Computed example of a mutant assay.
Amino acid sequence: MFDWFRRDPTKKLQKAYERKLEEAMVASRNGDMRTNATLTEQAEALRLEIERLKEG
């Protein structure tokens, strides 16, 4: 009955995902490829979590 009161957990994860991609882009522009790779990997993990939540 009150399902519409629940917050969508994917919205928070989506914002975190976009933030990680933004940070990775900035690191890439600054020439820090190691940080870029780390942040991109973290963003990919967030994307997989978002997809998992959307499926279930």
Results as ranks from 00 to 15, higher is better:
residue 1 M to Y: 07
residue 1 M to K: 07
residue 2 F to Q: 08
residue 2 F to I: 05
residue 3 D to G: 07
residue 3 D to M: 10
residue 3 D to I: 09
residue 4 W to L: 12
residue 4 W to V: 11
residue 5 F to R: 05
residue 6 R to A: 15
residue 6 R to V: 12
residue 7 R to G: 12
residue 7 R to V: 13
residue 7 R to K: 15
residue 8 D to E: 12
residue 10 T to S: 06
residue 10 T to K: 01
residue 11 K to D: 11
residue 11 K to E: 14
residue 13 L to C: 05
residue 13 L to F: 00
residue 15 K to A: 09
residue 15 K to F: 03
residue 15 K to D: 09
residue 15 K to T: 07
residue 15 K to S: 05
residue 15 K to V: 07
residue 16 A to S: 08
residue 16 A to V: 10
residue 17 Y to S: 06
residue 18 E to Y: 03
residue 19 R to Y: 06
residue 19 R to T: 07
residue 19 R to V: 01
residue 20 K to Y: 13
residue 20 K to I: 03
residue 21 L to W: 06
residue 21 L to H: 11
residue 22 E to N: 14
residue 24 A to I: 04
residue 24 A to P: 07
residue 24 A to W: 05
residue 24 A to Q: 05
residue 25 M to T: 14
residue 25 M to I: 10
residue 26 V to M: 10
residue 27 A to Q: 09
residue 28 S to L: 09
residue 29 R to L: 14
residue 34 R to Y: 09
residue 36 N to V: 00
residue 36 N to D: 06
residue 37 A to G: 00
residue 38 T to W: 04
residue 40 T to W: 01
residue 41 E to D: 13
residue 41 E to A: 15
residue 42 Q to I: 02
residue 42 Q to R: 13
residue 43 A to Y: 12
residue 43 A to C: 13
residue 46 L to G: 03
residue 46 L to A: 09
residue 47 R to M: 11
residue 47 R to Q: 14
residue 49 E to M: 00
residue 49 E to Q: 12
residue 50 I to H: 04
residue 50 I to P: 00
residue 50 I to N: 09
residue 50 I to E: 05
residue 51 E to A: 09
residue 54 K to M: 11
residue 54 K to Y: 04
residue 55 E to W: 10
residue 56 G to K: 01
